[in-house]
Design a protein around this nucleic acid. Structure first.
Lengths: 335, 335
DNA sequence: TTGTACGCGTTATCAT
DNA sequence: ATGATAACGCGTACAA
C-alpha cells in the first residue's frame, strides 16, 4: 500500500492539514518545527503526494492533453516532442494520444483525454479531417497547432505556409534565375499543404499543375521514378521534407544531378535535412516556437495572433553552396 | 460544473450504483429498463465518467508511463511511438515524460509519473545513466526497453545487439569479401552501443580500434570529414542509423563513392534509411515488436525472455543492389 | 436495487 | 498565528 498523507501526519505527530500546507506552501503557514517534522516523516516513509487525489479535489490535474497524428513523419514527431518539452517545462504532464487509421478515431482520443480531467488540450489534427461539434462544446480549453479544421474554433498556431512558399519561390527565381518552378504537392489540398499549394499557384503561370504524391518519402520517390523526364521542371518546391527526401532518392536512382539538373527546396526544415545527399535547402518551420506558443496560449490564456515565420536555410540542393556548406541569408525571414 | 454520476442517477430516477454498473457492464446486472433510462439520461446530460475519480477509487488508473530520452534521434522517436501505439491498443493511456539535459532528470520524471498513479512504466533510459535505488523500490511495475542500467532490476526487452553485428559483419565478409571491416562507435561504451562494439571487437583482428563520434548525424559527418583517408576501412559498420547517415553525407562531401570505395551497413534500420543516397543497407531492429513485448510484460505480467532478432535488409550501400533495389535475404534473420 | 463507506488530498471552519 | 477536524470531490463495490 502506498504511503498516504495520513501516515505522514501520524508519524509527524500532526494533522493531515499541516502536511498538506507544507507540501503546497500554503494556503496557510506552518511553524518551522512542524514543517521540519513533516518533512522528516515524509522522507523516512517515502511519501509521494497522490496526484490523482489532488486532481479530484482541485478539479485541475496538471495534465495537458496532446492529440497528434500517429505518423512516422519526422515533422510531426518533432512538433510532438517540442510540445512535450514545452508542457513539461511548465510543470505539467503531457498526456498523449495518437489517433490514426490503425487505432482510435479523433473523437475517441478526445473523449478519453477529456475524461482524464486534463487542464487543456493541444490538438494537431490530421489535415482534412473535420471534428464533431461536441469537441468545441467542451469547457476544456483547446488550442490547435499546425492545422485547424474548418469550422473548429479556438486559438490556432499555424505553421508558416504562405510566406514560406514565397521565400522559396523568390529565392529560386531571383538568386538562381529559374523561370519554371514546379511544386510537389500532397494527395489533397486541405490544411497547410493546401495553403502552400495555393501560394505557389498564385506565383506561377496560370495553368501550371503541381506534381502529386502521398506524403511519405517512398511515395514521392516512386512517383518521381516513374515520371517522364520532360515533365520535370528544373526547379521544384516540395511541400514537405519527406517528399523532398524521396525526390532526392529518385534523382539518385535516375541519375539526375541535384542541383545542376534539378534544384529542390523544401518547406519543413526538420533536422534530418542537413545530412541528406545533397543537403537540402529548406524553409525551416519554427517548430519549437510553435509548440511554445500553443502551450502558452493554453496555460496563460495568451491569445497570440502573431504568426510564426519560417527562415530560409540554403544548402546544396538549390545550388547555393557547394557540398557541406550552409547559409542563412541575412533578412531571409522577411519577404 | 461537469455532469456527475449523481446528476445522471437523479435524472434516471435511480441510484449512482446502477449508473456505475451500466457504464462498467458490471460487476452486477441491471434491468433493461433501468439501463435504458440511465443511458438516455447520460446522453441528454452529456455525462462523461471522470477517470480521475475512478482511478482514485480503483487504485489503478489506466495510465501507463513512458520515460524515454528527449532525443531528436529517429530511433528513439520510433520506439516511442511504437510504445504509445502498443499502450493505446490495450486501452490504456500513455503518460509521457522526456527527461533530458535541458529539462528534468530521470528521477524527477519518475517521481512525477509515479505520483500520477500509473499502472506501470516503460523506461527507455539514457545509455550510461544509472538510476537511484528508490526506483526499484517502487511497487509500480517497471520494464526496461532498449537498455537497462547496471544494477537495475525488472524485465528487460533489449534491442538485438550482438546478433545484429554478427549479421552485418558476416554479410560484408562473406558476400562482399571485405577483410577489413571497421566500426563506427559512439562516445562511450555503455549500453546497447557498447554491446555492439564489443561484438565487433570479438570478430575483428586484435588491436583494431573503432572510429568514434557523437550519435548525431552532424557529429559523425564532421568527424569523418576530418578523417585521414588512409584511416578509413573499405567497409564500415555504423552503430546507429544516425551515424551512418552522417557518414553518407561526409562521403558525398569528400567525393568518396559509396559503396565502391566505402561500404556501409548500419544497425538500427529506422524507416528513414530506405531513402538515403545511396539507400542504406541495415540490420533492422524490430522496434514494434520490442514495444509490443515491453507493454505485454507490463500488462500481462508476461516475462518474455526470448530476445528479439533484427533482420538484414540489403540495399545499395553495402554493394548488394543497384540504386533503387532492396532485398531481405532468406534466412538472414538467423545467423 | 439501493444506500453508503471508502480512497486521498485540499481547504473551510472551528479551536487554541 | 497555528493546529486539528471534517466536509468534499466522484465513482466503486460491499452491505443491506
Amino acid at each position: 500500500m502506498a504511503v498516504t498523507i495520513i501516515d505522514v501526519a501520524k508519524r509527524a505527530g500532526t494533522s493531515t492539514a499541516v502536511v498538506s500546507y507544507v507540501f503546497n506552501d500554503g494556503p496557510r503557514g506552518v511553524s518551522d518545527d512542524a514543517r521540519r517534522r513533516v518533512l522528516a516523516a515524509a522522507a523516512e516513509l517515502g511519501y509521494r503526494p497522490n496526484r490523482i487525489a489532488r486532481a479530484l479535489r482541485a478539479s485541475h490535474s496538471g495534465f495537458i492533453g496532446v492529440i497528434s497524428p500517429d505518423s512516422s513523419n519526422p515533422y510531426f514527431a518533432q512538433l510532438d516532442r517540442a510540445l512535450i518539452a514545452a508542457i513539461g517545462a511548465r510543470g505539467a504532464t503531457p498526456l498523449i494520444s495518437h489517433p490514426g487509421p490503425a487505432g482510435m478515431t479523433d473523437e475517441q482520443a478526445l473523449r478519453s483525454l477529456l475524461g482524464a480531467q486534463i487542464d487543456g488540450l493541444v490538438m494537431v489534427p490530421w489535415e482534412g479531417r473535420t471534428l464533431e461539434a461536441d469537441l468545441t462544446q467542451s469547457s476544456t480549453p483547446i488550442v490547435f497547432a499546425h492545422h485547424r479544421p474548418d469550422g473548429a474554433r479556438g486559438p490556432f498556431v499555424p505553421a508558416d505556409d504562405e510566406h514560406a512558399v514565397e521565400l522559396a519561390f523568390r529565392h529560386l527565381r531571383e538568386q538562381h534565375g529559374h523561370e519554371r518552378i514546379g511544386f510537389w504537392a500532397g494527395p489533397d489540398d486541405r490544411g497547410p499543404a493546401g495553403r502552400r499549394l495555393e501560394t505557389w499557384r498564385s506565383l506561377t503561370a496560370e495553368g501550371d499543375e503541381p506534381h502529386r504524391s502521398g506524403y511519405s518519402r517512398a511515395a514521392a520517390r516512386d512517383v518521381m521514378v516513374g515520371l517522364d523526364r520532360s515533365a520535370l521542371e528544373p526547379a521544384i518546391i516540395a511541400a514537405t521534407d519527406e517528399q523532398a527526401i524521396g525526390l532526392l532518392a529518385a534523382a539518385h536512382i535516375r541519375g539526375i544531378r541535384v542541383p545542376d539538373e534539378l534544384a529542390i527546396v523544401s518547406l519543413d526544415g526538420t533536422s534530418g535535412t542537413d545530412c541528406t545527399v545533397p543537403a537540402l535547402s529548406v524553409v525551416r518551420q519554427p517548430v519549437e516556437e510553435m509548440a511554445e506558443r500553443a502551450v502558452a496560449a493554453l496555460i496563460d490564456g495568451t491569445v497570440d495572433r502573431v504568426e510564426t515565420r519560417g527562415s530560409l536555410v540554403t544548402r546544396e540542393s538549390c545550388g547555393c553552396t557547394p557540398a557541406g556548406g550552409e547559409t542563412t541569408p541575412a533578412g531571409a525571414a522577411s519577404v
